[in-house]
Amino acid sequence: MDYFLQQLINSLGWGSLNALMAAGYTMTFGIIGLVNFAHGEVMMVGALTAFWVMVFLQLPFWLGCLAALLGSIVVGLLIERIAFKPLRGAGMISLFITSLAASFGIRTLFIMLFTDRVKPFPVPDFLKGVLLLGNLILFKKTILIVLLTLFFCGLVIYFVKYTKTGAAMRAMSYDPEIAGTMGVPTERIIVVVFAMASFLAGLAAIFWGIKFGSVRCSMGVIMVVNAFIASVLGGIGNVSGAIVAGYIIGIGETLFVAYLPDHLVGLRPLFVWIVLFVLLIFKPSGLFRPNIK
């Protein structure tokens, strides 16, 4: 029992990362029908920016965090402007291929320039250490990651659910053409959505760095697969659904590995694909109501 609880606690950090990525992923998925593989690279660029600021420039941790958020937002908006905007209305397959190209392109460029070696992500002292809860060990960094994730996810859910911009976002997911005729400035809303999604990816980049103590150029690959599957699981375009699904996948994956025999630990990525296949067979629309037609 203790083993299970301990694994459950450990999984919350990974679950938070998945939730943040899935929330952003599902927003862009919903609003322009985009299967955005490049979302993982948005996170990676944020993480690398933080690495440069903290390790090369020797600036403090909080400036590194700020740099990660800015880096992610800038690259997210640039990808939108350069890769996706020219294809507005071109259909899902074109966007799919373009986002794949953007993802490969950015990742390969970064690996060429900086190699895929693991890069240190300095974690400040106040995030090191553990709390003891009976027999259970609580990492301080996990507590911070979970609390901040829940806070920012709460903000995003409130924004999407209760503001007029949020209503416009959901309306655009459902029927972008009519949303335009209702006076919704559709291009501006798309920019807002990409900025928010990239901000969440930047947060995920910081939390990745804190959790693992290192970052690398290929870090976005696993993340984006999980985010994609979580956004399908949560109902496409449904932000709160994606957050719950992100936690389900993050926690499930950790527990899956925890109960695998040691020599099979390499099967870790299998978990999300099993989730996807079971989902497609039994409930292809996801656990929660999708936000698209």
């Binding site: 007029k164 209503a167 416009a168 309306a171 949303a179 209702m182 006076g183 400035p185």
Partner: peptide, 10 residues
Amino acid sequence: YENLLVVANR
């Protein structure tokens, strides 16, 4: 209500 709120953007 949310259908009407969408229009509040203008």
